[in-house]
Design a protein around this nucleic acid. Structure first.
Lengths: 198, 198
DNA sequence: CGAGTGATCTGAACGCCGTCCCATTCCATC
DNA sequence: GATGGAATGGGACGGCGTTCAGATCACTCG
């Protein structure tokens, strides 16, 4: 009832995002509930709508947070590493997805209504992760084909994503595949071999 | 109210699956509702639970139907084709996903509760689609590495899936990729080149 | 200091959902 | 006919996202 001002708007936003991400990671996208988040932080459901405007906006913000964590995770794994950096990046992809299973899955389970585009800031986060891979690809590509790095990075990201996705959703288990990471690395190596890189 | 016997149990099952698949294809997984399906076929929600037992079982059956249609689509695209059969299969993958956008997406959006495995019949359908690809891969592989076909097929399926997924969910659009099919074909070609196939 | 203003917050209400379950209805059998 | 059992309907339940009128409090300004 009524104004409380226990927290500033920014604090509230942060509070919701923290508890929301905790919930999302714990119960997964399908069982995630904005009401439950409100309950846990001791505010009413209305407050969440005051701050985020809609369920979709909240989820976009939560997925954005996942992307932030993912980028940091990836960079930490690469930091100081001299050799086999691309393999390390692939391992990081899988390790993050496995470790943050629910949050990672939510990135792809949640979809905006058709025609609605994610915000620029969300796109930038996706681009930032991609950019890391572009750099790593460029570094192992022969200089004369280095311009191919962005397109190749997108494509290899998709390949690795497919392997990771099948590993997590049980498709690979169904098909008897027991080394998804190895398979993903092999496909990346195949692509680099074509360009004389690696 | 009460027993009607307008349809046999099998007819009812088929009725629900038909209308359910129509709904799923029309509104997508997120907006799909068993109640709505019941309403449209002129039965009550209870009847759907009599026939399928749960929402999850219904969705598994609907996804099974999608897999059936997909397999038929794939086989038709390959039938009578002499050259570039693998490219045709990749195109079929994308064309099916694009054409049956919602139904295809539902295959991956819907997830059983953790620990619950899909039925054998569902697994067989997935395996049947995979088997088509295994055959095509085996056909273009040098005889001495033909035993690699199943593992390679799983991996390439994952790669193509990743490209298709990113094409449909907007990731590729975000990253400026405008030829997902071409990229997928290139990655498959890269892998075959390693084995001296193609 | 006190009244008025406006931002903030609550929670009931709405129309959905999946799920459960029992009263009702009808068919088949005797 | 009567009856037993299978099929069906649909209300009830708890939960969801969403909305919004009303309650409440921190301010501002006279």
């Amino acid at each position: 009832m009524g104004r409380r001002s226990d927290h500033s708007r920014e604090e509230l936003r942060e509070l919701i995002l923290q508890e929301g991400h905790r919930q999302l990671a714990q119960v997964g996208f399908a069982r995630f509930s904005a009401r439950e988040v409100a309950k846990r932080i001791g505010y009413s459901i209305g407050t969440i709508y005051n701050v985020f405007g809609s369920y979709d906006a909240l989820l976009l913000a939560l997925n954005g947070r996942t992307l932030d964590i993912w980028l940091a995770f990836l960079e930490e794994r690469l930091a100081g590493r001299e050799e086999r950096r691309l393999d390390a990046a692939i391992e990081a992809y899988f390790d993050f997805a496995l470790g943050e299973r629910h949050a990672w899955t939510a990135l792809y389970d949640f979809r905006l209504p058709e025609g609605v585009l994610p915000s620029d800031s969300y796109r930038e986060k996706v681009a930032a992760i991609t950019e890391v891979i572009v750099r790593e690809i460029a570094a192992v590509l022969p200089p004369d084909v280095r311009e191919e790095a962005p397109a190749l990075a997108r494509s290899l990201l998709a390949s690795v994503h497919g392997h990771c996705f099948f590993a997590l959703n049980g498709t690979f288990a169904m098909l008897g595949e027991d080394d998804p990471v190895g398979a993903a690395k092999a496909r990346v190596a195949d692509a680099l071999a074509r360009f004389g890189g690696g």
